[in-house]
Design a protein around this nucleic acid. Structure first.
Length: 98
DNA sequence: CGCTTGACTAGAA
DNA sequence: TTTCTAGCCAAGC
């Protein structure tokens, strides 16, 4: 069963929506929590269906948002109390644990 | 039906 | 430190 079921997608969306303000999660964390095989699936879901999701709370494993979204995400995160140093978020302090 | 693109990651150079 | 590679899955053309 390699394909991602809709339940997995819904789970991913639920997990992202469940991230409290002031916390962030990595694509890999969400993928693992949702049972996905690849973190790209999470990125795919965000790109395809990010309308009602706080995607700005989802960052890469490096502690840094995607290049094209870094400015916007950093600004949104900063508004929620997530301080980023030189464009890098402190995962040790802000990473949400499911 | 096949190739390219992309909100990714970890490891290597 | 940055850049590249391989693996990964789905959508678009």
């Amino acid at each position: 069963m390699a394909a991602v079921t809709e339940d997995q997608v819904e789970l991913v969306r639920a997990l992202v929506a469940a991230i409290p303000a002031g916390r962030v999660a990595t694509y890999g964390d969400i993928a693992d929590a949702a049972g996905l095989s690849s973190p790209r699936i999470v990125g795919w879901i965000m790109r395809t269906d990010s309308a009602d999701l706080p995607w700005h709370r989802v960052i890469r494993a490096s502690g840094r948002p995607a290049p094209h979204l870094s400015a916007r995400q950093l600004e949104a995160l900063r508004a929620e109390g997530v301080l980023a140093d030189d464009g890098k978020v402190d995962l040790c302090a802000t990473r949400h644990r499911f």
